[in-house]
Amino acid sequence: MQFRDVPWKRNLRKVPEEIISKIQQLTTDAFIVGTVKTLSAADVAGRFSHLAPPSELDEPSELLPPRDMGMYSTRNVDGWEVKRTDLPKIKKTFYWETPNFGDAATYGTHLHFHEREVYRREFHEPRFYTISTKLLKMATGAGGGGIYQLAINQPLLRTQNGYEEELFFMLNLLQENCESVGIYSADASPEEIISTLSLDWEIFPPGSNDEIVRRLTAGRKQDARKTGVVAERVKLFSLLKPNAFLRGNGAFGSYIGARYADDLVVFENMEYGNALYVLYDNWQEVSKRSRLDLIRGTDAEYDRLPHTYGWEQAFGKIMRREKKKRGLV
């Protein structure tokens, strides 16, 4: 992707020492990645227009940074993948489409499945972090602009597993979009911060497909397309007879899934909506993870099925194999 030109250094190679020092001096574990800047009217209309800085004191804006602001802005929306050549290879199932009798137009196609050893891959889901821009003090005169607070709209805990990597990601996202970085203590209590990071699932037993869809979408803002996708997933999950359905709450509000055994769970982020995960970890451990830890590490413990042609058949094949291993068929 061609990134837009910016008149500042786009990325950081490491977390600045002053940021590390500020974090060490915090009296609480919770903090926000943000900065304060004085913006002129020309800045608001020009180089910072992608954040839509507000002109009123009580009307903060909150926007998803555009992909073309830089690598971290792109990863924030699309996620990213890392091949782990430093680890032993593992067996994975691959599937692809082949024309029948060499003529797909006349005879259609069929799927091939093949297992082979490959390097493990770390897939990092998109973060969908937004940047909040708040006008703290108006500039004198009628020209506009003023003093603004710009912050990533997701607090961090320095006691959180892997927080250093997430801090580095957030700082780069802020640098790409705001020209400078900083941190400050979160206003919320540590308990409130933890509640936004901790995993929270609602678990309910199987029922009719219509009933499950209603429960998965109740109290949520859903357009017709998303509701239709939820209905499709429920139909697919139900064919394999789960013992429970899962609905994420709080920070997990965009996740739905189904549990077939304590170590066989499937789920999908409906906000992202381009891949299904089959997770083989123990559910009691999974249910304690934060949103950032839900899918972290190599894919030795899960299968990720992008929604390309034939993914439903591949999902069925994997699930039948895994259920058979567990004596569920």
Rank of each mutant, 00 (worst) to 15 (best):
2 Q>G: 12
3 F>M: 04
4 R>G: 11
9 K>A: 08
13 R>T: 14
16 P>Y: 07
16 P>A: 04
27 T>M: 05
27 T>K: 15
32 I>R: 07
37 K>Y: 06
37 K>T: 12
38 T>R: 12
39 L>A: 00
43 D>H: 00
47 R>E: 08
49 S>V: 06
50 H>G: 12
53 P>E: 06
55 S>E: 12
55 S>K: 04
55 S>L: 10
58 D>E: 11
59 E>R: 01
62 E>D: 11
64 L>D: 09
68 D>Q: 14
69 M>N: 09
72 Y>D: 04
74 T>A: 14
75 R>H: 14
78 D>I: 03
78 D>R: 03
78 D>G: 09
81 E>N: 07
82 V>W: 01
85 T>H: 14
85 T>G: 15
90 I>P: 00
93 T>I: 13
94 F>R: 12
99 P>H: 05
103 D>Q: 03
107 Y>H: 00
108 G>S: 08
108 G>N: 12
110 H>Q: 07
117 E>R: 06
117 E>M: 05
119 Y>K: 05
125 E>D: 11
130 T>Q: 10
132 S>G: 06
138 M>E: 15
142 A>H: 09
143 G>V: 08
144 G>C: 08
144 G>Q: 03
149 Q>R: 15
152 I>T: 08
153 N>F: 06
153 N>M: 03
155 P>S: 00
157 L>Q: 12
158 R>D: 10
160 Q>P: 12
160 Q>T: 02
163 Y>V: 00
164 E>M: 10
170 M>P: 01
173 L>R: 09
175 Q>N: 03
177 N>D: 07
180 S>H: 10
188 A>I: 12
188 A>T: 00
196 T>M: 08
196 T>L: 11
199 L>Y: 04
199 L>T: 15
203 I>T: 14
203 I>V: 15
205 P>A: 11
207 G>L: 05
209 N>C: 13
215 R>T: 00
215 R>M: 11
222 Q>W: 02
222 Q>T: 14
228 G>P: 02
228 G>T: 03
230 V>L: 01
231 A>F: 12
233 R>C: 01
236 L>W: 13
236 L>D: 11
236 L>G: 02
239 L>G: 13
240 L>P: 02
241 K>T: 02
245 F>T: 00
246 L>T: 10
246 L>E: 10
248 G>F: 04
248 G>D: 03
248 G>Y: 08
248 G>Q: 05
249 N>W: 02
251 A>H: 11
253 G>L: 01
257 G>S: 07
259 R>A: 04
259 R>K: 15
260 Y>P: 08
260 Y>Q: 04
261 A>G: 01
264 L>Y: 00
269 N>F: 03
277 Y>H: 09
283 W>S: 08
283 W>T: 13
283 W>K: 11
284 Q>Y: 13
290 S>R: 06
293 D>C: 04
295 I>T: 03
296 R>S: 08
296 R>I: 10
297 G>A: 09
299 D>F: 01
299 D>A: 11
310 G>S: 03
313 Q>Y: 09
319 M>K: 00
320 R>M: 15
321 R>H: 05
322 E>W: 05
324 K>I: 01
327 G>C: 09
329 V>Y: 13
